[in-house]
Design a protein around this nucleic acid. Structure first.
Lengths: 212, 212
DNA sequence: ACCTGAACACCGTTCAAGT
DNA sequence: ACCTGAACACCGTTCAAGT
């Protein structure tokens, strides 16, 4: 890791195929390269200069599209929330047409955990990296959209004739369980030797959907 | 942040009070300063040179006690797991003598969440920063000790006459909920304007202890 | 054994100057 | 408007040399 990443291939090939001084859509290219790099390295270090190099552009060029590195990471997180929400809503819809709210919740929860396992670095970037200070509006909106979708899905599992406060606590608790499960899996906290992790996840989600 | 942290005071004052070429216990001083800095900055950047400066020592000196920066962070995480476990076991013991398993679990769960809120940067360092590759043995032991304690506490809430697999899923699910709740609170995902967060946490823990 | 000082290869960020 | 090139103040890490 001391050497420059010599053997790193250019990931996206937009304009700027030699000669043109201006890159076609540098912002898009930086985000796409960033998302790809996150999952290749499996760690969320993500250098600004590294991304500029991949896009075939000088370090300073990045600052025409993002005020700083943090805003670039925020853009990646926003993209991540969009993809997570899309993945889950697809899972909900599939189940909802042929079955009931409980199956929809199970599918959505499984999709959430699957997303975390498929995109560990992005998931950690989305949650865990940004606190209240760094919170920008677009990110808040993207995460709220996902949150509201999950809460709605969970609330539908219940019959619906219980106090609002109790219902809310139940929904948040269930969401926290799905989220915590994802986090613990990424941190390798649930991997004793030779466990059936998939089976465990299935059992937990099924169990959660049968609480009352 | 572009300037050196000029106005930063020396946090711990061990030996090396001017003149002595050798620091008394540099390893300990680096860890103590690190833990303190984590919560002052609220963010887990934690420069190696920054810590060396605080200890009044050259950057290279750190490498006599830690093979690299990552190992220093691991040491901080180990310390964190120790403190979390201690805090929880105190909470368990208090309740266990005067009451039952359910109260003990509630107290332990509350202590877990309280620890996360009191030490957000440390909590994020403990979980979330180290994946399987970086996992060192001491850290694995410290985190396993905490995990086992929680699992035992949770399993005691149940009567005990149910299949082992179901019991395990229940315990992991409950732990995941406590953990996920902590994580979501730190990420500011549960803070609509003027919510009663403490009340919500209480409701969820109470609800969890009454599942069956 | 423990620490310094100076160097190395990197960062993120800024800014005049180029197209 | 967008990008380059060179500079600035930092990093983490290494290693001869000091005590």
């Amino acid at each position: 890791m001391t050497l420059a990443d010599v053997n790193m291939v250019k990931v996206t090939s937009t304009a700027k195929e030699n000669g043109s001084y201006h890159h076609g859509d540098l912002r898009r290219a930086l985000i796409d390269n960033g998302l790809q790099l996150l999952e290749e390295n499996m760690e969320a270090n993500l250098g600004l200069r590294q991304l500029a190099r991949l896009a075939g552009v000088s370090p300073g060029a990045v600052y025409r599209h993002f005020v700083n590195k943090e805003e670039l990471l925020v853009a990646l997180a926003v993209e991540g929330f969009g993809r997570l929400t899309q993945k889950q809503s697809r899972a909900y819809l599939e189940k909802k047409t042929v079955s009931n709210a409980m199956d929809a919740f199970r599918a959505g929860g499984a999709a959430y955990i699957q997303f975390a396992r498929e995109n560990p670095a992005l998931f950690r970037l989305m949650f865990g990296r940004f606190s209240a200070t760094h919170r920008n509006e677009e990110l808040a909106k993207a995460s709220k959209l996902n949150r509201d979708m999950m809460m709605l899905s969970i609330s539908k599992v219940l019959g619906g004739e219980r106090p609002a406060r109790e219902l809310h606590a139940f929904c948040v608790g269930t969401w926290a369980m799905i989220h915590g499960l994802s986090a613990l899996i990424l941190d390798q906290q649930l991997q004793e030797e030779g466990d059936d992790l998939d089976g465990l996840v299935e059992d937990i989600i099924r169990g959660a959907s049968e609480w009352e």
